[in-house]
């Protein structure tokens, strides 16, 4: 082995060349992903953007493509999102707080944690199948906004739990110890210190989960959401006391992605233009929500220096 050259300049420059080639390859890979995203946006916008006008937003779906609009779809999406948020946010934050601040290290906690990891990998359509059997038939909620909100709420629950835990974990333990030393109880520490300090992280998770829910289609089709709805849910405001009602929660609905799916599955080209227009709105909403989440995460990270 004494003959071996320890330092070979040729070999070294060959390694460097390979290194260089790999870097270019990975930039190409990255570019492939980003260009695809860009192409998707351009394709959708060039087809659909011109179709979006006041009438499109305020018309019900129709058999005539030029008269069809997305009124029932966006109102439905709004109602379903509201119900989803109501179901998932308290449950998700509570579960996250328990797992991070209370949970003892035992097999029950281990099962819950393993379950949350697995839940994120379960296909969304099986949530729809469960909801069809439990919410629609066993509980008798029917094919309503309530069923849809609960289904999507359960679907996005892991996202809220995981981000809540991450947000709590970044708070240094000195904060907790200082509060305990002042005689605060565990809940007081959480209520007065941990939750306020982790608002940014939790908010990020909530926004991401809503952006996921707003585009989710498959589980809602499974619970039997209708594709053709030419009326709005009951108005939440009434003439009589107490002036508000939640009757709308029991109403049938459609949502933006389902409306888009309905249009894209038709053979006529005019309906594809409608689908693109609905897609532009849907994509804008998701990108705005995600942008907001990125912004909030970045600004809180800059602001808080422990």
């Amino acid at each position: 082995m004494g003959e071996r050259v320890v330092f070979d300049r040729k070999e070294l420059s060959r390694r460097q060349l390979k290194d260089y080639i790999f870097a270019i390859m990975s930039l190409l890979a990255l570019g492939f992903g980003l260009i695809t995203l860009l192409l998707l946006i351009i394709d959708l916008a060039s087809t659909g953007l011109g179709r979006i006008d006041y009438a499109f937003m305020t018309n019900f779906p129709s058999r005539m493509p030029e008269k069809a609009g997305i009124l029932s779809a966006w109102v439905g999406s709004l109602c379903v999102m509201f119900t989803t948020a109501l179901a998932a946010i308290p449950l998700g934050i509570a579960a996250g707080v328990y797992l991070e601040e209370y949970a003892p290290k035992n097999w029950i906690t281990a099962i819950i944690e393993l379950n949350i990891v697995n839940l994120a990998g379960i296909p969304s359509i099986t949530f729809g199948l469960m909801a069809l059997s439990i919410f629609v038939y066993k509980f008798g909620f029917g094919q309503s906004i309530l069923t849809a909100g609960l289904t999507l709420g359960l679907l996005v629950l892991p996202i809220i739990i995981v981000t809540t835990r991450e947000a709590l974990r970044t708070i240094p333990s000195t904060i907790r110890e200082a509060a305990f030393a002042m005689g605060a109880s565990r809940w007081q520490v959480i209520q007065h210190h941990l939750l306020p300090y982790s608002t940014g992280g939790i908010l990020t998770g909530v926004i991401i989960s809503l952006s996921r829910a707003i585009g989710e289609t498959a589980p809602l089709i499974t619970i039997g959401a209708l594709t053709f709805i030419a009326f709005l849910p009951t108005s939440p405001f009434t003439e009589e006391f107490p002036f508000v009602t939640i009757q709308w929660i029991k109403d049938p609905f459609t949502v933006l992605p389902i409306q888009m799916f309905n249009w894209v599955s038709r053979p006529q080209e005019e309906f594809h233009v409608n689908a693109a227009a609905a897609g532009v709105i849907l994509l804008t909403l998701t990108l705005l929500l995600n942008g907001a989440a990125i912004y909030i995460r970045a600004s809180f990270r800059r602001k808080i220096k422990w």
């Binding site: 995203l37 952006s211 585009g215 888009m260 894209v264 693109a276 897609g279």
Partner: peptide, 9 residues
């Protein structure tokens, strides 16, 4: 984050 129905389109 892009909705799957948009990917379908």
């Amino acid at each position: 984050a892009v909705p799957t129905v948009v990917y379908g389109y």
